[in-house]
Simulated scan of single mutants.
Amino acid sequence: MLRSPDRAATCVFGHLFSYAADHGRTIDLPAGAHGCTDRAGTPMDPAEVFADAVWNVFEKRWPSTSFVYRINGGEHPAYPQPTPQGRVIAHLRALAAVPFVMA
């Protein structure tokens, strides 16, 4: 689940996407974020293009979507917290504890 149809509930990737899109609306975006179209040829919001890029960087640097979904769904034994939010926050704290090295 990225987010529920009524947008009342969202997973970590929904939060990541929304945060990046909101941030993208407050900064000067790189030229690559402008003029993009979706598969149907419809112009895309540059902030959402930016948010897609942030999501891709997250997945390349840290865990894949399928790994986080297992944590979110309570299927990963290293994250036994009682709620999806608690499990994902514990995982994000574990990521933050590891030094980030630029490749």
Rank of each mutant, 00 (worst) to 15 (best):
A8W: 01
Y69Q: 12
S64G: 14
T26Q: 13
I89R: 13
R93K: 15
V88S: 09
F13Y: 06
A97E: 14
T42V: 14
I27P: 10
P84E: 11
S4H: 03
C36S: 12
A90K: 10
R25H: 04
P84Y: 01
L16Y: 01
V57E: 06
R3G: 02
T26G: 04
Y69A: 12
A8P: 00
H23G: 02
R3H: 07
P5T: 11
D45K: 09
R70P: 01
T37Q: 13
S64W: 08
E48W: 00
H23I: 04
F13M: 01
R25E: 06
A53Y: 02
G32L: 07
G74Y: 04
G73I: 04
H91F: 12
N72P: 04
K60S: 10
F67A: 12
E59V: 06
G14K: 04
T10Y: 08
C11Y: 03
G74Q: 10
A9Y: 15
Y79W: 14
P63Y: 03
V88N: 08
D38A: 09
C36I: 11
G14R: 05
A9V: 15
I71W: 06
A31W: 04
H34Y: 11
G73R: 10
A8N: 06
A20H: 01
D38L: 11
I27D: 02
P82C: 05
P77E: 15
W55N: 03
S4D: 05
A78D: 15
V98L: 14
